[in-house]
Every structure is written in C-alpha cells, then in structure tokens.
Design a protein around this nucleic acid. Structure first.
Lengths: 143, 143
DNA sequence: TGCAGAGTCTTGACTCGTTCAAGAAAAGTG
DNA sequence: CACTTTTCTTGAACGAGTCAAGACTCTGCA
C-alpha cells in the first residue's frame, strides 16, 4: 500500500485529498488497532504540524466513508483499523487491552442472523471476544 | 423479584447488604439497558440521598460480582442490565440508540469459538447487532 | 445489646478523551 | 488565476467517569 494508493482510495470515495487525511490513513494502516493518541503521533511523524482536531475530523470522515473502521471495546478509548468490509472480529485482552483480529468463525456475513430481531433492521454484527492474550496468560499481572 | 430477593442475591455473592446497593440493584432490574444517569434517578426515587459516587461504586461492585452486566455500545454511555449468565446479546439502533435483547442465535455458549484465537484464552463473546429499530425504520430522523 | 474493625458512602475536586466554534488556509472548478 | 466550498488550526469547553479523605454502616463476636 503506497501513498498513491491512499490518494486513490480517497478519490474513490469522493473525498478531497488533503495531507492530513493521507497522513491519518497511512498512520492507521501502519498501526492497526492504535488509539487516537498513537495515531496523532504517527501522523505527526509524517506531517509534523497536524492538529489533533484535524486527526479527529479525518478519522470521522474516513470512518463515514468506510475507509477506516473504529472499534471501542468497553474500558478502552477508540481504536482504528483499515481492514474493512470483510466482517472480521476482535479478541481483546482483559488484562493488557491488546487487540488481535479474528476471522469470522461462521462464514462471510454470518452472525448477521439474530434469532429474534424484535423488528430491528440489522446491518452489521460486531463481535468482541474477551479473554487473556498469551503474554498475560503466562504472566497475569495484578489480578 | 422482590426486595428480599435482592438482599439474598447480595448475600449469595458475599456482599454486604447496604441500602444503596439494594436501590441500585432494584433500579437496574426495573430499567434494563438504562444509562448511569437514569439509574441514579431511579435509585434516588427509592433512596433519595444516594450520591452518584455510591451508584458508580455499587454498579462496579455488582458487575464484578456478576449480578449486573454492563454494556457500552460505541457512541453510548455505559448501560446496565440484571440479565446475566445466559449469553444473550443486543441489538442497538444506530439512530435513536435504543437497545433490545436478542437470544443467542447459535445455542447456549456458542459464539465462543473463534476460528483462530491467536493464542488468546477466550472466556466471553460479546455480540452487538447494529441496525435501525422499528420506529426509526419507518421515520428515519435526520439522515 | 454493645463494641470493634473492615468495608462503604458522602462530598467535592479533578482527569482526559472528545467535541464545539470561529477564523484562516487549502483543495477542487472553470 | 480567481472563486467557492470544504477542511484545518487554535483554543476553549464539555461531561462521563475517577480519585481522595473523612464520616458513616454493616457484620461478627463478646
């Protein structure tokens, strides 16, 4: 994934190509599951003067456009990733908060079938597996 | 579910029986999926002088003990419910934020099998279905 | 019933991720 | 290149949730 690719991604969804957006897109791509602060740092290593506000705004815009996806496990701040549209899920470590991707166990667009949806029109199923990561399993920190 | 039942619940998990806890437990039971502020109001209708801090603390304690469960859909504040241990899930309306219970589509403790868990030890699967509730489907507010 | 000690609650201040607002700057258009 | 619209910068504000210290309650035991 190169810089021109990111530009093309933006144009494909009819967004203006701006340096903050490119920096944010590249930062999210390079640091999957990073929180906003990390993304701000990463974006600033590419474009030193970006304001945090521009990063927040870009993240919102890109999320709306579907280029990035945000996840917010309970007890964590917002995190972002560029892997979208393939209906994958996440495992979150209860101890250290680290996140890993998990492909959907059931198929392509699987978990979209709730047993009784109460009349809701469902368009997405979000699954979060909670547990302990390998490191925290072997060395469980403060219990 | 009567007041003595709540007392018994607390004793069963070896928690002290205090009026704030009873009020919180009853409030959560009476208002499933309510946010913290609503629970504070509801608890105060039973016990006028409870501090918000006591409610927060009780909610945390009860959550730890497994008597209540907290859910935090992205973009929403924390919400609580007393239905625990049956591995049910939730539908959340993207428009108005209302929440409904959904029984697990697959079985009893189903979704606990991720295809590749990356070495994580998984103990819970949390599923949130996103969509539109019946009201917002027929009258979609500001798009 | 009364006492001691651990655990809880009240009060009030504070943190920090996120949002709001107004003006300046930059991207796209002809 | 000038113009219009969108986006970015700066700086302040918001608010759910947390922290801390002291007062108060609950429970177990004499």
């Amino acid at each position: 994934m190169t810089a021109p690719d990111f530009q093309q991604q933006l144009r494909d969804v009819e967004l203006r190509v701006t340096r903050p957006r490119l920096a944010v897109l590249e930062a999210v791509h390079a640091h999957p599951h990073a929180d906003t602060e990390s993304i701000i740092s990463a974006a600033r290593s590419l474009l030193p003067e970006v304001s945090h506000q521009a990063v927040y705004d870009s993240l919102h815009t890109l999320t709306h456009a579907g280029l990035v996806r945000s996840i917010k496990p309970a007890g964590s701040v917002a995190r972002y990733e560029t892997r979208t549209g393939d209906n994958h899920h996440h495992v979150v470590c209860r101890s250290c908060g680290s996140i890993a991707d998990v492909d959907c166990a059931v198929g392509d667009v699987p978990c979209l079938t709730a047993s009784d949806s109460h009349g809701f029109v469902i368009d997405e199923a979000e699954v979060i597996y909670w547990g302990l990561c390998p490191e925290c399993t072997s060395a469980p920190s403060r219990s």
